[in-house]
Design a binder for these strands. Structure first.
Length: 973
DNA sequence: CGCTCCTAACC
DNA sequence: AGGTTAGGAGCGA
């Protein structure tokens, strides 16, 4: 530090209390965490940083630090045990905020300094002295009178809230003495808030007057007998030592030891790291400040993932239910019930009736531009794309719609054709349609807005629109998705889905035009591009309008129900990741499938002949009805189970059991069925999904399971065979292009590991920590047999039980699985609970929790609702109980891999790797990797996957990932 | 043509 | 026995 430099010292602790008291006390983050003081602190600090970055006004700091009190006991307590003894403990809701505020300072990239045994004021005094000695200037950001003693020619105090700067003159005006006499003044007056005694009967006015007359405290105490006023004289004599003690208490220690990285020169200022700061502010859900900071630091907030802050000692989770009405008034912040909240929001969103006649058709570029300007002004819009086919990958863009405010919506036709156009004649004269903006021009106008960080694009199933726009080179950001918001809020095992029409009826009481109504179905179906533009305007603009209103209804619930974290970390950021995976697709070798199909056909024909011969007649083995009649009627075999509708069941289990009794026909049926399945569902169906580059693009659904798992469809690539050798042959058709390999990385036993953690089972945890065969350990524990040389059948039974536990075991189910009597299965379960009592506790607690709340939670806070768990029907109830037991385990595993996926792309990119994530199969990720980068990629993938729970959750068992590279999926797996 | 039932593929 | 999607059969309109 040199002459002309300027040090800013922020009195952090004083800041905290001011922020706390200045703000409404009940500000909370969506998960219930109180953050009012953090918010106030960040706003004040940002204002300061922003002002100090502005070179056009005032002083610009060259050095900057935020100073905190370390603890309440300091050297002053050894001088005087009563020092600050009257201080009350900080309020409960302030406590968790101290740590967060220190995090805030670090996020601002500012030195955060505190020292055990010293007060912030001492550190401030020390830095002030050092800076002045070095020839610099100092601004102390505080209004604490204890700091007035530091003011001097080069040192001022700055009260940010009142925007007042105090120099020596201002101190004199305020207290009647110049700063150098402040210590003596305080020693005389004492300080009730710090419990500094001072001299009784002497307040600031008298003290100033006395010091004016006698010069210093020491002088005054010595000449006290001269004082005329009896009481004052007596007190000054009697309490002289107390005054001297007070002086030592109020005198700041300007010689505080400073550690490494805390030296004056270490406080040299630098530009804040925009991403780091935005990540923190996002995590704290300070939306306004996030926006401001992002803009000022030229950071794209939507690109930044909110920081994953670990917050200790904060009540959250099961015990804190924000919707419980408090016992005593003021007990709990939240008194709204979801129903009340939703009702209020619904009124707001439907206040403006849905009126399709008001929707606008935009046919020229100028009008489109003015609408986009409106969107920019507004900062958000609902956005929807219409495509020629229902699949985003294959469909061409036909038009887009958007809504700026409820009722204010428009449709932009882009590639409509005349209604009588057909495949042969192609598009008719576009002018007859009333004019359309050509695709390229429309995209040029849309792109800047769709990619504008300050305009939020709200969609319903926005992954679809992301993919459509991605096909046109537009990467939409930032985004929100009403489907995903609804899913985070209300994932349930019931029938309620998260489709727009459903949501609209549920929340807005409005039934939108359905796709079928618009385009027809079956024989009457026609492409949307051939539907009259006026009709499509009503349909498409309505979709955008409804989406916007749904967003208004649903988005606030995220925060109110503490689900913002789930949405923001597990849902929203995954959408673009999945869109890119879908766009890439996976390469499939058509020849391999075709050869397999031929082979399966031949075998199938042979088996069909066998079957007909054994049955003594031709029948359709694919008809369970006909098959049942043959087996249990004509041939008189013993029937086992019945299906729901009362038919004899002919599923594989039944047929296997019959085969085991020596019947040949059932065996052949099983073989036939397997081949038929493989051929029909895979070898024959998959080629029809291939694109011109030989790649298959599945569609992942983010909101169709209750537990948080993804699903895959058109085609489903999450059920490609693996169990049998013939099935695995299908996997060999999934390949990497020349020069690349497929890498498959899968979590080993992730659900059992999560069970071990959640239910806290010592034996299971130890086994996982020590890499012991978990099923063998279970068998050994249950049946008392050594792991060495264990009968594979015994291990198989234990394995079935372990899986059964995850599924919310029942004697019926286990008996079915193992083909053993129900009584025997019951005994196994009993034994299991005896050996692992924690499991039964977990099950009981989970059931009770689900019954009380109507939902269960994963470790990451995702909820799965089971309203029917209180059903009077014992079967329904039991089913819901088992599902509720399973959901936290399955769901936590789903959350873990989602976290890995959200982080994966940037981790690979940071490592300079070109690997591309293609598929997710629940506990497995599949990548396409350049031959030269395989080892490095596997290392990064494994690291990201294994570390995925942290830092939000720290599992007490390690996660393990197996990864392998090969030319095809079968060998990589 | 559209729905339900049954079965089977996966984790 | 928890979570899925797909395909064929069968049936009614």
């Amino acid at each position: 530090m040199k002459k002309g430099d300027h040090l800013f010292l922020v009195d952090g602790s004083a800041y905290i209390f001011r922020a706390y008291h200045a703000l409404p006390p009940l500000t909370r983050k969506s998960d219930g965490l109180p953050v009012g003081a953090v918010s106030g602190f960040c706003n004040m600090l940002w204002k300061l940083v922003e002002e100090s970055r502005d070179t056009s006004v005032g002083v610009v700091p060259t050095h900057f630090a935020v100073i905190f009190d370390y603890s309440s006991t300091t050297f002053r307590n050894t001088l005087y045990s009563e020092y600050k003894a009257n201080r009350e403990a900080p309020p409960e809701d302030l406590k968790p905020q101290f740590g967060l505020i220190r995090e805030a300072v670090r996020a601002f990239d500012l030195p955060c300094i505190e020292k055990e045994g010293f007060e912030a004021d001492d550190l401030i005094a020390t830095y002030t002295r050092l800076a002045v000695e070095a020839g610099g200037d100092v601004t102390i950001v505080s209004s604490d009178k204890d700091l007035m003693q530091l003011v001097g020619p080069n040192v001022i105090l700055y009260d940010q809230m009142k925007d007042k700067r105090l120099g020596a003159q201002e101190v004199k005006e305020k207290f009647g003495v110049y700063p150098e006499k402040m210590i003596d003044l305080q020693a005389l007056c004492g300080d009730t808030s710090d419990n500094v005694p001072g001299v009784p009967g002497i307040g600031p006015k008298t003290a100033a007057q006395l010091l004016e007359e006698y010069g210093t405290l020491e002088e005054l105490l010595e000449r006290a007998p001269e004082i005329k006023q009896t009481k004052r004289r007596e007190n000054l004599i009697a309490f002289a030592d107390q005054a001297r003690l007070s002086k030592r208490l109020v005198t700041l220690d300007a010689d505080t030891p400073l550690g490494d990285g805390e030296q004056l020169d270490d406080l040299f200022i630098h530009e804040p790291d925009g991403e780091k700061l935005v990540a923190y502010l996002k995590a704290m859900e300070f939306t306004t400040l996030t926006r401001r900071v992002a803009a000022a630091l030229d950071t794209d907030a939507s690109d930044v993932e909110s920081a994953d802050l670990k917050i200790e000692g904060v009540p959250r989770g099961p015990d804190l239910d924000p919707f419980e009405v408090p016992d005593a008034p003021g007990d709990t912040v939240f008194t709204a019930t979801p129903a009340r909240l939703a009702a209020r929001l619904k009124d707001g969103a439907t206040g403006q009736a849905i009126d399709r006649s008001r929707y606008v058709t935009i046919r020229d570029a100028q009008t489109l531009r003015s609408w986009m300007d409106r969107a920019r002004d507004k900062g958000s819009m609902a956005f929807d794309t219409e495509t020629s086919q229902l699949s985003a990958m294959n469909g061409d863009l036909v038009g887009v719609s958007f809504a700026i405010s409820p009722g204010e919506a428009a449709y932009v036709p882009i590639a409509h054709v005349a209604a009588d156009a057909d495949l042969l004649s192609g598009p008719k004269d576009a002018t007859s349609l009333g004019g359309q903006i050509p695709l390229g021009e429309a995209l040029d106008i849309l792109k800047p807005v769709l990619e504008d960080a300050s305009v939020l694009k709200i969609g319903q199933n926005i992954k679809y629109d992301l993919l459509v726009m991605l096909q046109h080179g537009i990467a939409m950001t930032p985004i929100d998705d009403t489907m995903l918001i609804s899913y985070a809020l209300d994932a349930s095992s019931g029938l309620e889905g998260h489709g727009m029409d459903e949501l609209s009826e549920r929340w807005l009481g409005h039934k939108p035009i359905s796709y079928k109504e618009l385009c027809g179905s079956g024989r009457t179906a026609r492409p949307i591009a051939a539907v009259e533009i006026d009709k499509v305007t009503e349909y498409a603009a309505e979709d955008a309008d409804v989406t916007l209103r749904l967003w208004q209804v649903l988005k606030p619930r995220l925060a109110a129900e503490r689900l913002a974290h789930v949405y923001e970390r597990l849902e929203r950021p995954l959408a673009p990741v999945l869109a890119r995976m879908e766009q890439r697709g996976i390469m499939v070798d058509r020849q391999i499938l075709s050869r397999l199909s031929g082979r399966f056909s031949q075998k199938q024909a042979g088996i069909e002949a066998d079957i007909a011969q054994m049955a003594g007649e031709e029948f359709n083995p694919g008809s369970p009805k006909q098959l049942g009649e043959i087996l249990f009627g004509k041939l008189g075999l013993p029937g086992g189970k019945k299906t729901k509708s009362g038919q004899w069941s002919t599923d594989a289990r039944v047929l296997e059991d019959l085969a085991a009794e020596g019947h040949d026909l059932p065996r052949r049926i099983v073989d036939w069925r397997q081949l038929t399945k493989l051929k029909g569902t895979y070898t024959d169906a998959l080629p029809s999904h291939m694109d011109e580059n030989g790649r298959i693009h599945t569609s992942f659904s983010m909101a169709s399971t209750t537990t948080g798992r993804l699903s895959s469809s058109e085609p489903n690539l999450q059920n490609i065979p693996v169990r049998t050798e013939e099935g695995r042959a299908i996997r060999t058709a999934f390949v990497a292009p020349k020069g690349k390999k497929l890498v498959s990385a899968d979590y080993s036993q992730i659900e059992l590991r999560i069970l071990a953690h959640i239910a806290d089972i010592p034996q299971l945890k130890d086994a996982f920590r020590n890499g012991i065969d978990i099923h063998a350990m279970t068998a050994s524990e249950m049946f008392g047999v050594p792991v060495e040389g264990m009968d594979p059948m015994v291990r198989r039974r234990a394995k079935a039980i372990n899986f059964g536990i995850i599924y919310g075991i029942s004697a019926f189910g286990l008996a079915n699985q193992l083909s053993i009597p129900r009584e025997e299965a019951g005994l196994y379960i009993k034994r299991y609970f005896e050996r692992f009592p924690g499991i039964r506790d977990y099950m009981d607690q989970t059931k009770a929790y689900a019954k009380k709340h109507g939902y269960v939670e994963t470790l990451f806070g995702r909820r799965a609702h089971y309203p029917d768990i209180t059903s009077k029907n014992p079967q329904v109830r039991a089913f819901n109980e088992r599902a509720a037991i399973n959901a936290p385990i399955q769901g936590t595993a789903a959350d873990v891999i989602r976290r890995a996926m959200v982080r994966m792309e940037s981790a690979l990119e940071t490592a300079g790797l070109s690997a591309q994530m293609l598929l997710q199969v629940h506990d497995e990720l599949i990548f396409e990797v350049d031959d030269s980068e395989i080892d490095e990629t596997i290392a990064v993938v494994r690291r990201v996957m294994e570390a995925a729970p942290g830092p939000s959750v720290s599992l007490s068992v390690p996660l393990e990932v197996d990864a392998k590279a090969a030319t095809n999926w079968d060998e990589a797996h």
